[in-house]
Every structure is written in C-alpha cells, then in structure tokens.
Amino acid sequence: MTDFIIEHRAALGEKKSSSFMGVKLEVLPEGHVLHALAGSADGDLSGAIRTALGLEALAVRFVTPGQWFIVGDNALSHAELTGLADRLKPMVDIVDQSHGRIRIGLSGEKATAVLAKGTAADLALAAFPVGHATMTLIGHIGAHITRTGENAFELMVLRGFAESLWDELADMCAEFR
C-alpha cells in the first residue's frame, strides 16, 4: 500500500490579493471558523459568547436566529477547540468549519459598489451597519457577508466555491482597474 502524505493546500493558494482603483480584494488567512448553534432560535447570545471567550465584537457574527460564526485569523489546535467548546457548553454547541469556509476581504471606497453588483442585500450603511452580518447570494453562490468597516466587508464562502467567487469578484472589480 502506498503511503500518501496529506498536503494542505490553501483554497485560494493561487490567488494574490489585488488592489484596484478604490477597491482591494484580499485573501484572508485560513484561521478558524466555528459555527455556534444554540438549542433555541430565541434570544441573542452573541454578547454572551464574546464575554465567555473574551473576543472582540467582529469575532462573533450573526448567521441566523440561534446561530453565529466565531471567526479568527489563527488556526486552533484540537485541544484549544475542545477547551473553547467546553467553555461555551451550556449555552451553544460548536461545529468546526475552519476547513470548510474561506474568507475573502473586500475593502475601499468602491467596495459597496462592487458588492452591489452581485447581491440584492441592502448594503446602505443605515440598513447594514458595521458589525452587521448576513447570509445571501452573490451571483449564484451562497455567501456570508460581514461589514467590518464603513468601506470594508468580509465574505465567507464554502471552500469549493472560493475560487469561483474570487474570480467573479475580480470581474466585478474590473471596471476600477
């Protein structure tokens, strides 16, 4: 039997962060993405999760009632992950999505204009303030959008769609080249 050495390849390994006129497309580190699921859809536990783990505001993002993504740039070891899950145990259950979801950064004064080409979600600052997050379609690809700044977004997409979404975003940025 042949022994295979498993080689980790970044989903966007062949892509380079690119700057256009007024918009920047960034490959973000494949750190950790944890899906936190509460037993009930009622109530907002994001504040309690942040307090329990001592996280900053943008690290815990709304997905759907009773579900959040816990996001960070550093990879977690198995021990760190179980420790973290234990600390959240009575409140939410954790599913590790670190290898399943890829983050892409989109920033700059034209970022909203670029994103608006692909999604029907209302991106106006009043309707989509900093820290707000939502699941939507970008073209035909399901993606999770978080506003990380007035002119900055983070997109999270299933790993297999990351390259397609990246190419679509690059096309959407093309007019600002």
């Binding site: 759907t64 009632p65 029907a120 979600a121 209302d122 309707a127 939502t134 699941m135 939507t136 379609l137």
Partner: peptide
C-alpha cells in the same frame, strides 16, 4: 423578518 428585503431567487 430576519434578513430584510430579498429577491425570490433566494427562496
């Protein structure tokens, strides 16, 4: 009620 106005393609 959770996401705001969305196109029917999402449903």
């Amino acid at each position: 009620p959770h996401c705001g106005q969305r196109p029917k393609e999402e449903f």
